[in-house]
């Protein structure tokens, strides 16, 4: 990660919709070539933030720049230097793969002599060479998303904004996708990506967690895990999970469901294991397994939200 100055820098970025404050005075500072992850649950303000950075939405207040251009006054300059991929597929369903690519290469003003090469590159990257004549609307989700990415980077923008690029995409396609993002970051592209998949956060160089319009934590994935998880995480396997959760929460224990398991946070591991076993078994709930685990970012997030 070669951080030469900041590519995205905002202070006090705020957006209100009537009385509702969607984004509440956030600060960001992102360097060149960084993959910056913007994490948070649905409705936390991720999309609103990304739209303000792309010049699609005017901030209510705050200041800053993207690629050296002012976010309040130079949105059209910003648009020359970015690629944007929206949360919802927003290419033309009634145009073929190739027609979409050609159209956007025109919109981005890709020079005539480079156009052919860039279009072929996008088709190759998206794995759509065989399907160039297919209507975009009929593509499966993973291909749609890669086509959208291809269209957004036809002009080789130095900054890329991706809004939930992997939502609704199968795990294999997600992996391919992240490999691609990594490659682009390696060649100097700054990537700002939002996601609500916590497991994807580990692909990012740096993260900000946003909750109810505010950034509640920021740092590298490792830093976040170390700094914010002073407490230890126990993973519990029980039969009657929901009931167990209920009992633990009544006792004041920090617990949450993770798939088919319960995660609880405790101050002391040995003491915690003993306490939880006793509590659950006194309610006739069989504990099949209980052990300490390395916290995931999701654990970090759950803990932070409970504090916030």
């Amino acid at each position: 990660m070669n951080q030469i100055g900041s590519v995205v820098k905002v202070e006090g970025l705020t957006r209100r919709f009537g009385d509702f404050v969607a984004v509440d005075g956030i600060n960001l500072n992102i360097g060149k070539g960084e993959i910056f992850g913007f994490l948070g649950p649905n409705g936390a303000g991720k999309s609103t933030t990304i739209k303000m950075l792309c010049g699609l939405l005017l901030p209510s207040s705050g200041k800053g720049s993207v690629g050296g251009h002012d976010i309040m006054t130079e949105s059209e300059e910003i648009k020359k230097n970015i690629g944007y991929m929206s949360q919802k597929f927003s290419l033309y369903d009634d145009l073929t793969v190739e027609e979409n690519i050609r159209f956007f290469s025109g919109m981005y003003g890709v020079r005539r002599e480079k156009r052919k090469e860039r279009m072929e590159w996008a088709l190759e990257m998206a794995g759509l060479k065989e399907r160039r004549g297919v209507m975009a609307g009929t593509l499966p989700g993973g291909f749609k998303q890669r086509l959208a990415l291809g269209c957004a980077i036809l002009h080789e923008p130095p900054i890329l904004f991706l809004d939930e690029p992997t939502s609704g995409v199968d795990p294999l396609s997600r992996r391919t996708f992240w490999n691609l993002i990594n490659k682009m970051s390696g060649s100097g592209t700054t990537v700002f990506v939002t996601t609500h998949y916590m497991d994807e956060a580990d692909y990012c160089h740096r993260l900000a967690l946003i909750y109810r319009g505010r950034i509640i934590a920021e740092g590298t994935p490792m830093e976040l895990k170390e700094r914010f998880m002073k407490r230890h995480v126990l993973e519990i396997e029980v039969e009657r999970m929901v009931e167990a959760l209920d009992i633990l929460e009544k006792k004041g224990v920090d617990a949450a469901i993770f798939g088919s398991l319960l995660h609880v946070t405790v101050e002391d591991v040995a003491q915690g294991i003993a306490d939880i076993r006793r509590t659950l078994e006194s309610s006739d709930i069989q504990v099949d397994r209980i052990e300490q685990i390395v916290p995931s970012l999701e654990d970090v997030f759950v803990t932070l939200i409970e504090v916030a």
């Binding site: 792309c54 010049g55 699609l56 059209e76 648009k79 020359k80 970015i82 944007y84 929206s86 919802k88 597929f89 927003s90 290419l91 033309y92 369903d93 956007f104 919109m107 981005y108 003003g109 959208a148 269209c151 957004a152």
Partner: peptide, 14 residues
Amino acid sequence: ERGTMEQLISTPVK
């Protein structure tokens, strides 16, 4: 209506 405007206005088109 179809949401395609979002992509279109993110490009430098005048």
